[in-house]
Design a binder for these strands. Structure first.
Lengths: 342, 342
DNA sequence: CTCCATTCGGCAAACGTTTGCAACAGCTTA
DNA sequence: TAAGCTGTTGCAAACGTTTGCCGAATGGAG
């Protein structure tokens, strides 16, 4: 049915090995022969069978990309960038969704292990031990989690969180809430730690609410709890929760940022679509995807296990404003934005 | 390095064919032997090599999923549903992004053809001819486009568009705008046709603005043009454009739905996150993804080329309100919503 | 004219499976 | 007791490539 290397060989009067070489080691075959082979291959519509190639070379030219939830808007830009980048290097990408379930995650990476040259593990929920173990079966690059000895690319959320808290402090807020993310998330721990330390250093109070599923519903559902704490500013684990909270606050007549300031994390596409536009910490997810692909593909050459940290930046928009202890010269969002731009 | 069927055979004292059968045709091997083999396989951590299996059976147990833009929020729910559904049937999914480019699309499906048992083509931008041609190389299911003779699952956007226009007409709007989608989109043509026919039948005017890239920026950029037409209601190709338009209108002081009503299509997650909440046509994308997977996997058995049409429904929220010709008893969004709920 | 180096292409083994065929044992049936 | 079935297993070919090895052809140097 399908046209194989053998058909091409017959049609162009050479041995199959010559055809093979025209594709995988062109410099070893006479230019004249080569072009003849290429012509017949083209004409016959020949496409190398990757499975056969994989069988003998041991390289599939496929990679796996495992994320917690494809529908979470944090991931699509990362998936897109990784896929495009991988394809440019002649790799195809299996995408799989764990639904935030560590068990599914483990199953998945083991099922994929034999079919790929490596796996990109985004925000894994497995234990460190499980990841270490799995790493022995297949090359791995972890995204958004730091595990010693494992190649990883992480966004420096700690930095972003510190900036965010400092921004709120500067605005005159003294009681903050951290609306936490899911249990088992490295990112969540980092944020909490960084935010807590920064607030404490300034003598401000930080109340942690959570853990929570990182979706807008939980953000919305937390509005009551947030108000009850008496805090005037909230940092949320991600934009989704921040947006849910923001709308829920407005729906019950609380002015944002007049009464409560809200900061998100991720800078997903929708953070500029809500009103007020969301102040948030921008994560370079596309860069992370591309970098991770590069690290994975280089891994074969040397066993280098670099850990890349990507910079995150606070983007000040309109969901944050002066707090009860605002300095005499009020730092409004606009002023601060101008300042940051500088 | 990796443990093969041969290792298992040696370790359990049987021939490799017995091991093979233990996995692919268990009923052919003695229960006792079978459990012994399974035990050693388990212990050795054996995982069948899919490439080798594919080579001989011709079935890869992989499918390809090609979309125009992973980051477009319309797709992730579809991708997620398709992937989960496929995995449940022991298939893995290659996801690829064409960036709305027909050339990339063609390349992609041809590159993937040999590595998969079939391809899901979402909202393809290729010509009918190209699709027909490609269909000869690999089983195909087309999503969101109807091509005679090709298995497809489409959302009945025509129905949704009619409902939407009728809703606006009922509210007393007499001059509508259709903010069109990308050239080459089947969906776009369907909507335009249905909306046009419905408006015309009611003696109302429908101005088409476009074609446009289906992103929020073009929606926002169209605000001026929309206002210039003098229309009081807009149906947009998708929610993204509708939201862009909606915010842009509000930013320039136009009240929605007071002065202009806006209707989107797709019911992406964010349509409830903006204020006013977006009235929109809900597309069952998850169902579409699952159905398409089923159709693709059944295709091998018989050559049935069903075409499934999925029902779409208008969801009335708060971005639509009475127009200049509103009936004496004003049909407010709330009333209409209550009516629809019934 | 001989020798050597270089370039090119053929040969065949190997990758890890599946599967048609055959062999064999133990039964049942006539 | 022979014939035939059934259930279980082994044997070996096949799938479409890649690649180490070897021989043939070519051309240049001496």
């Amino acid at each position: 049915m399908a046209v194989t290397i053998r058909d091409v060989a017959r049609a162009s009067g050479v041995h199959i090995s010559t055809v093979s070489r025209t594709f995988s080691a062109p410099h070893l075959v006479n230019p004249e022969t080569r072009s003849r082979v290429l012509a017949t291959a083209e004409q016959l519509g020949y496409r190398p069978n990757r499975a056969a190639r994989a069988l003998i070379t041991g390289r599939t030219h496929n990679i796996g990309l495992i994320v917690a939830d494809i529908a979470n808007p944090f991931f699509p830009p990362l998936i897109k960038a990784a896929e495009t980048h991988a394809r440019r290097r002649d790799y195809h990408v299996f995408v799989a969704d764990t639904d935030e379930d560590p068990i599914v995650e483990l199953d998945l990476v083991q099922a994929l292990a034999k079919q790929v040259d490596g796996i990109l593990l985004c925000s894994p929920r497995m234990s460190d031990d499980q990841i270490e173990q799995v790493r022995r079966e297949v090359p791995l690059v972890v995204i958004n989690r730091m595990i010693t000895g494992l190649p990883a690319v992480v966004m420096d959320v700690g930095h972003g969180a510190r900036e965010a808290v400092r921004h709120l402090l500067d605005l005159g807020h003294r009681h903050l809430v951290y609306l936490a993310g899911p249990r088992g998330s490295w990112t969540n721990r980092e944020i909490r730690r960084a935010a807590g330390a920064t607030a404490r250093a300034a003598g401000a109070e930080l109340t942690v609410l959570g853990p929570n599923q990182p979706v807008e519903e939980t953000g919305a559902a937390s509005a009551e709890a947030v108000l009850r704490t008496g805090a005037t500013a909230v940092l949320a684990y991600n934009d989704l929760m921040a947006i849910g909270l923001l709308q829920s606050l407005q729906d019950r007549g609380v002015d944002v940022p007049g009464q409560v300031s809200v900061v998100g994390i991720d800078d997903i596409a929708y953070s500029v679509l809500v009103r007020p536009r969301l102040t948030t910490v921008a994560n370079p997810t596309a860069t992370a995807g591309r970098t991770a692909v590069d690290m994975l593909l280089q891994q074969g050459d040397d066993g280098a296990t670099g850990q890349v940290t990507l910079r995150t930046d606070l983007i000040i928009r309109n969901s944050t404003g002066p707090g009860p202890y605002a300095p005499a010269v009020a730092i409004t969002a606009e002023v601060a934005a101008a300042h940051v731009k500088e």
